[in-house]
Design a protein around this nucleic acid. Sequence first.
RNA 1: CGGGCUGUGGCGCAGUUUGGUUAGCGCACUGGUCUGGGGGACCAGGGGUCGGAGGUUCAAAUCCUCUCAGCCCGACCA
Length: 569
Amino acid sequence: MRWSTAFIPTLRDAPADAEAESHKLLVRGGFIRQLHAGHYSLLPLGLRVHEKVAQVVREEINAIGGQEFLLPAMHPATLWQQSGRWEVMGDEMFRLKDRGGADLALGMTHEEVFSHLATELNSYKELPQLWYQIQMKFRDEPRPKSGLLRVREFAMKDSYSFDLEQEGLDRAFDAHHDAYVRIFDRLALDAMPVQASSGSMGGSASIEFMVPSPAGEDDVLVCGQCQYRANVERGTSTIEPVSSEEPALEVERFATPGVRTIAALETCEGGAPAENQIKTLVMVIDDQITLVLLRGDHQLNLQKLQDFSGAIDVRPAEPAEALEAMGANPGSLGAVGIENYKVIADFALSGRMNMTTGANQDDWHYRGVSIERDIDVDDWADLREVRAGEACVECGAELEIIRCIEAGHIFKLGRKYSEAMGISVLDADGKAQTPTMGSYGIGIGRAVAAIAENHHDERGLIWPMEVTPYHVVIALLDPDDESALAIANAVDQGLTDEGFDVLLDDRNARPGVKFADSELIGIPYRITIGSRGLGNGVVEFTSRSTGDTEEVNSEGCVDALLTLIGHNK
RNA sequence: CGGGCUGUGGCGCAGUUUGGUUAGCGCACUGGUCUGGGGGACCAGGGGUCGGAGGUUCAAAUCCUCUCAGCCCGACCA
């Protein structure tokens, strides 16, 4: 490719609203342009990277037996109604009507469509199947952000496995796990597999592949000693038990004028340390008022509550709702004597006595509360968010919390979708069986951004060889010098013949511009051909990542350059 | 959805408080001269009607109302 005829609109300044490094650099380097919030155009350079990432994914999924499809992006509502997710997906699904008034949706994932196709499976002899596609997904994200990291329209590789038995699903799941490790390795992403919440996907097991980055949106618990890795939405820790003072006293109501917070209750007359308080949260779980109890110094993780309840919609009650339900304002609420609402308590409260909590009357609290004796707890659950420094549940070492980008996610779905969509095959005994499914996703555009996020310096991007838009850029400093041009053409041809993607910078621009641009767009190797070097009979070979330059005799330089690149395309 | 902020050429910004000729600057772009190994200089140019609609006024980028869009924090989401 000749740079002089290519569309590579580089910018000296990043757009003012770009925050994430990948966002700034992908825009500045002429890879992407925003059309509107959450929707990006891939320019030629961006598309080349995107396709190379997709190709790596494709090769590795093919290698474990995947068969590629391309499914519609627009789906009939009936399909989603059948799985029950027409309601579950809520506002996140783009919905529209056709001219006849039929409800349609833009696919945010493809369990339904693939399951629908899988109804054509008839016999156990046809199993297992491993199907996948690389297709646009549409999600009406409340807040698109960070360039390609969180968008509303994005390419995703999603694969789906169909097996007769659990062991088959386990194999498909493990095969994906290993394939994902290879994919992220090839993409030069340090992705770690972590235990994850299944969210709206349902299912029994789920592992996310997390790439550490400050631009990420997930917090991951990482043990420094053992291999324990878990999303905070799922992870637990071992905490020092708090020994309650014995004996259990009687519940006593006491005045706490103006006290509305845990912190205030710690310091007021007759108060108690946070760990001896019961925090009472009024939540609305699928329109049902529910009380959630935590130790005073603990934070609720909403996703844990959602996963435990299996609800579609979980939110904190509005202050007015809380007042109406409880007869007091938040800050003075408690679950003592509550019978008409469901109460869910965090495990950390188990067995605690002589606790302090709100009395459901402003300015009054109870002390001497023993949770099992005084509160009608319906359910116990792990609801609290782990904090950095707590002890690993596996080995007791300290847990760290690391901000990460979710680059991939694999689920064991079980039979939820195959049942709903009516997939059935006959087994060897001629009995109808419902296959068990797995689903496995990797965001292609997000992977591009994650790579950019992790491979850049102050001068610009530094693409890994697997995904770089061009392997080599030839900086032809004197395009009007015929001998220089001849050598540049020979190098271009020679490297291209060996399968390298070559960008020949033949623009009539100053050397500084060419160097700066080639570094900004992150081409791994630069070959500089200029009159100064040629005067000494050499061309130069520079590595983008190290900045090191070697001189190569211009005579017969193609072979020498091929050796330097080391055929590591 | 709540809070904060911003919309002026492709990008970055000034001008808005205190309405007043042809709306300005840097980068980018076009032509030219010089230059020629780290975003070069000079000369000459082209491009915006100030997010949109309505209003106030002799006069609106500037004031008022409505509206749309984008960004950040939170909520939410995977």
